[in-house]
Design a binder for these strands. Structure first.
Length: 212
DNA sequence: CTAATGATGTCCT
DNA sequence: GGACATCATTAGA
């Protein structure tokens, strides 16, 4: 085993432009949860699946009704976390993209665990799943990394934040990316329901469901 | 293999 | 009051 290379910050510039381009840059990057008093273990994983929600016109986006108390981070600068609760029990993590005033974000749908697996499993009490699937699905990502709404508004490009991004390791090959329709948004109607804004790393065992 | 099903809280109309 | 960017399990074919 060679020692792990040092963590590199995730450049905010990669999130400031077009959201689909940002999504491709985010795949393969790392999600890091620093230890704290409650969970004294560093948790880390590789982002393998994201979904884009872009602009006021996207009928599937929380931003479609304009700014509200909940979705406000989506209207702010790139690199900020937007966290919301769905179905009364699952916290979902988004990374805000594009310039302030343009509401857009990437939902982190799946992460491949790299470190802190024991802490992830403890945080997922009751889930009998394989290690590689501890964070397969947006609600599972939130649970495995101990994310709740208090993280909404956090700067994910700040390496000292309790939850943050890190750049894809330099020795990692460019991932093979596939695209498909977003999940669970049929209510939005066409073309939103079919537009291929779900991006994933082909072949990852940690994807949230059958590959798009 | 697919389909059905609870558990659960907040947002916006 | 209706709907919701879900999950894991159970039941059925």
């Amino acid at each position: 085993m060679s020692p792990a290379p040092p963590e590199r910050p995730f450049p905010r510039d990669l999130l400031a432009g077009d959201t689909l381009t940002a999504g491709r840059a985010l795949l393969g990057a790392l999600l890091v949860r620093e230890p704290d008093a409650a969970v004294p273990t560093r948790r880390e994983g590789r982002i393998v699946e994201v979904e884009a929600y872009i602009g006021l016109d996207d009928r599937a986006s929380h931003a479609r009704m304009g700014p509200t108390a909940r979705n406000r981070p989506m209207f702010g600068p790139p690199g900020i976390a937007y966290v919301y609760l769905v179905y009364g029990m699952h916290h979902c993590l988004n990374v805000v993209t594009e310039a302030a005033g343009r509401p857009a974000a990437l939902l982190i749908r799946a992460v491949e665990p790299i470190a802190g697996l024991d802490a992830m499993r403890a945080a997922r009490a009751g889930a009998r799943v394989k290690d590689q699937r501890l964070a397969a699905g947006p609600g599972s990502v939130g649970a495995a990394f101990g994310i709740d709404r208090s993280f909404s508004g956090l700067d994910l490009c700040d390496p000292s934040a309790p939850l943050h991004l890190a750049a894809r390791p330099e020795d990692a090959p460019d991932p093979v990316i596939m695209a498909g329709p977003r999940v669970g948004i049929a209510y939005a109607g066409e073309p939103w329901a079919s537009i291929p804004w779900r991006l994933a790393i082909a072949g990852s065992p940690a994807l949230s469901r059958r590959a798009p």
